[in-house]
Structures are given as C-alpha cells and as structure tokens.
Computed example of a mutant assay.
Amino acid sequence: MELRQLQYFVRVARLQHVTKAAEELHVAQSAVSRQIHRLEEELGVHLFVQKGRNVQLTPVGQLFLRRAESLLTDLDRAVLEIQEFLDPEAGEIRLGFPHSLGYHLIPRVVAAFRKLHPNVKFRFRQGMYASLIRDVVDAEIDLAFISPHPDKHDHVTGEVVLTEELFAILPETHPLALEVSIDLAQLKDESFVLFSPGYSLRSLVWEACKNAGFTPRIGFESEETDTIRGLVAAGMGVSLLPEMALYQTSAMMPAVVKVKSPHVTRTIGLIRREGEKLPTVVQMFHSFLLDYFQNEYTPR
C-alpha cells in the first residue's frame, strides 16, 4: 500500500467524484482510477460504487476512510513536528474559537504573539461549543478558546483564562435604556433576540432568565453577534451580550445597561487534548497566552 494511494482515495471520497479529485490533485483521471483500483485489489474489497456521474463509499469504504484520514493527519503532524524541531519560529498553530471572540480577543492575542514570533503561521477555525471540543479531540486543531470552560471532560483539559460580564442591550428608545443598572426580571415581558440553538451564549442567557423567574420569549434567533446587536438597535427586541461583543461601534448600536440581578458572567477557557504533548510552537503560544491573560490583558 502506497501513501499516494491513500491520498488519492481520501480526495475521491471527499469529493465523491474521480474527475474532480484528479483536477485537484493535478494528475490524469486515469492515474487516480488506476491507484484506487490497485488499492481495492490489495484490500480485497470495493471501496466505491458508481452513482450516476459520482461515486459513493461502500460501508467498508466509509470504515477505511476514517482510518486513512487519521493516518494522513498523523503523517502531516509528524512532518510539521520535524519542521518545528528544526525551526520552531516557522511552525503553524491551529486555533479554534467561537464567533463571539473573533472581533476583539483573537486579533489582540495573535497580534501580541506575532510581535515576539513574527514567522509563526496561524490556521483558524470558528465553531460552536460542541464542534470546538470535537475538533480538539479529533486533532483537527491544537488549541481552542471555548465558553463556558468545560468543568470536566475525558479527552480535553485546560484552564479558565478569563471571566466576562454580560450586559443587557436595549433599543435606545426603550424606557430602561438610560438606567445605570436593571434587574433582569424587568425584561420579562420583552421579546428576546437570542443566539441559535447550539450556541453556549443562548444557554447562558436562557438560564439567567430562568433564575430571574421567567422564560424568555424569543422573537428572533441569529448565529452572529453583529446581527443580534443590530436587531436590538432596530427595536426588534432585547438581549444579553458579553462585554467583548460590545466594543465594536456602528451606526446601529443599542443601549447597554448593567444587569445587577442576577449577575451574569461567562468563563472563557483554553483547551487542548488530554495527555498529549503539544508541538513546540503550540506550547510556546500556550505559555504566552497563560502569561498574557494573567499579567497583560485588559478588557479594552
């Protein structure tokens, strides 16, 4: 079995099309078909079945794909580790984070790190709580900022690096918009603009409302902080957002009011795979982040 055969197989499996795979690999279609055929002969199974102009994995093909992808990922990481051993300053860091950290936090910490290590490359992946944990476990990313920080997980470990307060956001014409602080219960009759299901901030706001004695009535849902902020500014409802999501200014800005009861906060953690030694360049970044949040980070 050759490495080239695995690479061709994975590309065809992902695209479900031999011709498209050949184009991406910059080889002839016949070369791809020949290598796939040889691989099937060696394994003694059919990995694909024809489905119109496309191909589809057989059940055993699906099983083999998982193993092949894992092998190729391990090989890529091995090559990268050797390169980093020779020159850590030229390595790559794969970092995941939720959308709510993308505007303010991530650019700040990456810019601060790149001042010290200008040649280090970054590959970013945004996602929701569950997908970020899965990407860390599956070695798709090295580190992830995540909120809330998981109390316990069998396959990831990490630290809380930041605790952040959530504020009520209201249309500027709202009767409570000029208040210094409010009780969350004062918004019990309002329509809420919340994150879509699966986002941790939705669960956090929902739980805060329950603790205040009411179930929030949902008027709109969104996957983007900017959209939620804009909808509230346009008078479509109220919401709660973390302080970090309120630094950006635009023509459509809501009023921001402190919530005194219940006091609502979120934890932001930095997670990595349990029991695995980080590559040199990732360890450099990890140590930098822990020091940065302890000694240098300020909210604005």
Score class of each variant (00 low, 15 high):
residue 1 M to S: 15
residue 2 E to L: 13
residue 4 R to Q: 15
residue 4 R to V: 15
residue 6 L to T: 00
residue 6 L to M: 07
residue 7 Q to Y: 13
residue 8 Y to W: 12
residue 11 R to A: 05
residue 13 A to F: 07
residue 13 A to I: 03
residue 18 V to R: 06
residue 18 V to D: 01
residue 19 T to E: 15
residue 21 A to M: 08
residue 26 H to F: 08
residue 26 H to Q: 11
residue 27 V to G: 10
residue 29 Q to V: 06
residue 34 R to D: 07
residue 35 Q to P: 00
residue 38 R to W: 03
residue 43 L to F: 15
residue 46 H to N: 04
residue 52 G to M: 07
residue 53 R to F: 11
residue 53 R to Y: 14
residue 54 N to I: 02
residue 54 N to K: 10
residue 57 L to V: 00
residue 58 T to Q: 02
residue 59 P to R: 06
residue 62 Q to S: 08
residue 63 L to W: 05
residue 63 L to I: 03
residue 64 F to L: 13
residue 65 L to E: 04
residue 65 L to C: 07
residue 67 R to W: 05
residue 68 A to D: 04
residue 69 E to V: 12
residue 72 L to R: 13
residue 73 T to W: 07
residue 74 D to M: 11
residue 78 A to L: 13
residue 81 E to F: 05
residue 81 E to R: 15
residue 82 I to H: 14
residue 84 E to D: 03
residue 88 P to A: 10
residue 94 R to K: 11
residue 94 R to F: 02
residue 95 L to E: 01
residue 96 G to D: 01
residue 100 S to N: 12
residue 102 G to W: 07
residue 103 Y to C: 06
residue 104 H to A: 07
residue 105 L to G: 01
residue 105 L to C: 03
residue 106 I to M: 09
residue 107 P to R: 07
residue 107 P to Q: 15
residue 108 R to S: 04
residue 110 V to D: 01
residue 111 A to Q: 12
residue 112 A to C: 03
residue 114 R to D: 00
residue 114 R to H: 10
residue 118 P to L: 05
residue 119 N to D: 11
residue 122 F to V: 01
residue 123 R to K: 14
residue 123 R to D: 11
residue 124 F to H: 11
residue 124 F to M: 13
residue 125 R to C: 08
residue 126 Q to G: 13
residue 127 G to V: 00
residue 127 G to Y: 04
residue 128 M to T: 11
residue 129 Y to S: 08
residue 131 S to W: 04
residue 134 R to A: 12
residue 137 V to C: 06
residue 137 V to A: 05
residue 137 V to E: 12
residue 138 D to R: 14
residue 140 E to W: 08
residue 141 I to Y: 01
residue 142 D to V: 02
residue 147 S to F: 09
residue 149 H to I: 05
residue 150 P to I: 05
residue 153 H to C: 13
residue 153 H to A: 14
residue 155 H to S: 10
residue 158 G to A: 08
residue 163 T to C: 05
residue 166 L to E: 03
residue 169 I to F: 09
residue 170 L to F: 09
residue 175 P to T: 12
residue 176 L to E: 02
residue 177 A to E: 03
residue 177 A to R: 03
residue 180 V to K: 15
residue 180 V to Y: 12
residue 184 L to R: 02
residue 187 L to Y: 03
residue 189 D to R: 13
residue 191 S to Q: 14
residue 194 L to E: 08
residue 200 S to K: 09
residue 200 S to D: 12
residue 202 R to G: 08
residue 203 S to E: 15
residue 213 G to V: 05
residue 213 G to H: 08
residue 214 F to C: 02
residue 220 F to A: 05
residue 221 E to Y: 09
residue 224 E to H: 10
residue 228 I to A: 00
residue 228 I to R: 01
residue 229 R to V: 05
residue 231 L to K: 06
residue 232 V to G: 05
residue 237 G to W: 08
residue 240 L to N: 04
residue 243 E to K: 12
residue 246 L to D: 01
residue 247 Y to W: 04
residue 248 Q to S: 09
residue 250 S to E: 15
residue 257 V to K: 04
residue 257 V to R: 03
residue 268 I to M: 10
residue 268 I to A: 04
residue 270 L to M: 11
residue 272 R to N: 12
residue 274 E to L: 13
residue 276 E to R: 15
residue 279 P to D: 01
residue 280 T to L: 07
residue 281 V to E: 00
residue 285 F to Y: 00
residue 286 H to L: 06
residue 287 S to I: 00
residue 288 F to T: 00
residue 289 L to T: 02
residue 291 D to I: 04
residue 293 F to C: 10
residue 294 Q to W: 08
residue 294 Q to V: 05
residue 295 N to H: 12
residue 296 E to D: 07
residue 296 E to S: 10
residue 297 Y to M: 07
residue 300 R to Q: 05
